[in-house]
Design a protein around this nucleic acid. Structure first.
Lengths: 239, 239
DNA sequence: CTTGTACGGTTGTCTGATAACCTTATATGC
DNA sequence: GCATATAAGGTTATCAGACAACCGTACAAG
């Protein structure tokens, strides 16, 4: 099914969100100082050429994100923006290779440690779920969406086996994003028999965890992620 | 206006937010199944006795939180509630010792790796800033707020020296929270001469980084964080 | 069986008005 | 003079109604 991909069409993509992003940029780049008052909704509406409803929704979004505070009868004010609070990774950030490599490097550190912890703390239900995920990945015909989901599931299950909620949270957060980026770049890559390699490496990780060997589990995970990175043309340093 | 109006309905707490919370509860408690369609905005407005604008703002908030998806011309649908997306660490979560230990364990993994990367990638300005932070910590009389800020600054600077934006983001995020928790629990602890130990360990980390010795830097950071943990009565496993 | 088209329903946006609220200035009482 | 009360204007919050854009379905046409 060789179907052309016309996904380049500029989707409307939510007018208020775009305006919120623009105002948000004004704030985080300092053109609107923290504590300073934003223009009135009327003025903003006139400036952007949209109705006040759209401006209101945009400001509501910024308020939810904590970038502005509104006081009835007074106005909207830019708050002290602390980008670290939000811990947001924009999709566009992963476009360039360098950012992706940085994120993957972080993922490496987290998942290697997680594999070691999983080897120590896992329970038998954890192993059963890992086996299920492996079977599901075997079942997936090619490197389809289904396979990607199974791959992601495996890594999440390893993180869950650490019995450390925060490892699970952070690894899920990061793995989802790297997987998304991989998925986006998939078209140009040659990803046919990679599945088998991936599964084999997954099995190695699973076995190391099952034998409660932290060092081996860490090494297996490190090997797997380095392999995955190199398959994407990335080179990560080994420390 | 002699009539005392103590009506319980304090409307001042942002009407849309309250309605969003109520609808959100309906979803997270399963009364609106994932994938199921919400009532139309018209119906919701009539049900809650408010205008459609308020309903729209409430739904917009839920959409920003990822609890619902809206499709123009179709409706609003409850999504799978994915708490992991938010990556939020509630302050209350750190109250119990177990959670704090988990978070500290995650911090250990990140910062140890960061120290190794910093040893490889740091530049001379990085070292200068590290020295400044050390001096500042020496200057702080006791383990005052000022000292805590300097301590936090040191760890952030190490993370910054990795030249990996994401390490900086995540480590800042976590270190701030563990420091906050430490600060909160500080009253009961005996924290007098600890500063000197901390500074000494910081210096060891700095020197290892300066000599571009990743293994040594990692070991120094690991030692430092294990020491910090044990000073708080925590015991972290070493993998 | 596929394609085109009309139709009703829903969300998205616009417009205008009113209520609630804050800030500032002015008037008032002492 | 000074503190308080009141009025005025501006801003956000909410309301109300309308139209536009879009989707899914049903049905007709080929």
């Amino acid at each position: 099914m060789a179907v052309a991909d016309f996904s380049q069409i500029r989707r409307n993509e939510h007018l208020p969100a775009r305006i919120a992003a623009q105002i948000g940029r004004e704030i985080s780049e300092g053109r609107i100082a923290p504590g300073h008052k934003l223009p009135t909704e009327h003025l903003l509406a006139k400036t952007f050429g949209v109705s006040r409803s759209v401006i209101r929704e945009a400001i509501a979004q910024l308020r939810n994100e904590g970038l502005v505070e509104t006081r009835q009868g007074v106005g909207a004010f830019a708050t002290e923006i602390d980008r670290r609070q939000s811990l947001r990774i924009e999709q566009g950030d992963l476009a360039d290779r360098e950012s992706f490599r940085s994120l993957f490097q972080l993922r490496l550190a987290l998942e290697v440690e997680a594999a070691g912890l999983a080897a120590v703390h896992h329970t038998s239900p954890d192993l059963a779920k890992l086996d299920d995920a492996l079977a599901q990945m075997n079942g997936a015909e090619k490197w389809t969406d289904e396979g990607i989901v199974a791959d992601l599931a495996f890594h999440r299950l390893v993180a869950a086996a650490t019995r450390n909620e925060y490892f699970l949270q952070f690894i899920t957060f990061i793995a989802e994003r790297t997987h998304l980026a991989i998925n986006a770049a998939r078209a140009s890559a040659v990803l046919e028999e990679i599945v088998e390699v991936t599964i084999a490496e997954h099995v190695a990780i699973r076995d190391a965890i099952a034998t409660r060997n932290p060092a081996k589990a860490k090494e297996a995970m490190r090997h797997h992620l380095h392999g995955a990175a190199s398959r994407l043309g990335l080179k990560l340093e080994m420390l």
